[in-house]
Simulated assay, not measured.
Amino acid sequence: MAASWTFAVARDELSRTTRVESALPELSDGEALLRVDRVGLTANNVTYAVLGDSMRYWEFFPPDRHGLDGRWGLPPLWGFAEVVASTVAEVEVGQRVYGYLPPAGHLVVRPSRMDDTGFRDASAHRAELPSPYNGYRSTVGDPAYRADQEDLLILFRPLFFTSFMLADRIVDNDWYGAQSLVFSSASSKTAYAAAVELRGRGPRLVGLTSPGNLGFTRSLGCYDEVLPYDGIGALDRVPTVYLDLSGAPATRAALREHLGDRLVRDIAVGLTNQIPNADAAGEVFFAPVQMRKRRIDWGRDGLDGRFADAWQRFTDVVGGWLDVQVGAGPAALEHAWLDVLAGRTPPEVGRVVQF
């Protein structure tokens, strides 16, 4: 009997992992089976696990569907999968799709709203979850897809979507009247992708990073200035927007002390150090909210077109920055997870796993 596998982490201790094998699931009418082919591991995936309960990320791939109890969680991954069985005429075997995937060999989906761009998973347990995570984009007809850029799409597309929408939100609000934008975790993919999109369009861009990442972050060329965290006192005391991608309380406190009322916006964008610090921020940026606004403003095709244009601008420069390291099989996935979780992956490295 053909078999599949599932990798999971303990919800109360993310460094504790397990891997189980199971038979391939039988399909019911209206379902299709995806074989997970190639995925990426970034700090974004750790964020999904850290916020698994509060933001319902654990609910996308329930452990009981993979032979595990509720003590375990399946951290969502982004990547490519292939349709290997289907009871839905519009979803053909062999179709390759990009989307939200479990750390497992296979995924059963219930395709709905099929069109040339792909389909959505209408499985009952996903009905009330954020809709942007339920789409599976066909590589055919995707304006951002190029076969030779699959690893960049795996590693950057979900992050770049956040970056693109963050940059758009800032521009859409006339930069909040700021003269300076300060990014924490400036060496992170989400931060520097947003900086690439904003570079030269408005206020001065300043990156904050750890001493060990100063050289790399400065080499990117997308920030006007890069400072270590203990250099906050050197920031110009001008109207400033803080984009918090680190969640570090000490950084926020130092900025507030130094800038005072010149800190005009304090926006939590994501977490990379597992400290849920969003409550301390002035506001939280959630990319799907801005995406919904722009779908109304521009229509889906307009949003897709603008995203594809921004993506190509970004990939024109990112190829020279990134060292993609590809592992093979479930054991490589576990190794990559533990490395990213522990912060052992340098900012210039991207982790991809092929199954």
Rank of each mutant, 00 (worst) to 15 (best):
L263P: 14
P203V: 05
A43M: 07
F119C: 04
G299A: 05
Y136F: 15
S131F: 05
D230P: 00
E82C: 03
T47V: 02
Q312M: 10
G343N: 08
Y242S: 10
G212N: 10
A122G: 08
R351Y: 08
T47K: 12
T87K: 15
D261E: 13
G70N: 09
S112F: 05
L338K: 14
W321G: 03
G73C: 15
W5Y: 15
R204I: 01
N277V: 02
G260L: 12
D304S: 12
G215S: 15
R120D: 07
Q354E: 13
F164S: 04
P130Q: 06
A127L: 07
P203E: 04
Y136P: 09
V317Y: 08
D224I: 02
G282A: 00
L322W: 03
V226G: 13
W298F: 08
V50E: 01
G260V: 13
L214C: 03
L14E: 04
L166H: 06
D172W: 04
G94P: 10
R294P: 05
R113V: 01
L227R: 00
T117I: 10
D69C: 13
L166D: 03
R256P: 02
G282N: 03
S131A: 15
T272H: 03
A49S: 14
A81C: 05
A342W: 00
Q354N: 02
L214D: 02
A268N: 13
T217V: 12
H258W: 13
F183I: 11
G177K: 11
L243Q: 01
D266H: 14
N134M: 02
S15N: 14
Q354S: 13
V206D: 04
L220A: 12
R146M: 01
L77S: 01
R292C: 00
G30K: 04
L333W: 12
V206Q: 06
R110Y: 01
E26S: 15
A278V: 07
E26I: 07
G177V: 06
R300N: 04
R351S: 14
T240Q: 10
D151R: 09
A336T: 01
P103V: 08
A32S: 14
R65D: 11
A278N: 11
P111R: 07
E82A: 12
G212M: 01
D304R: 14
S210L: 09
L245E: 03
G52T: 09
V196H: 15
G207E: 05
R11I: 09
A144H: 03
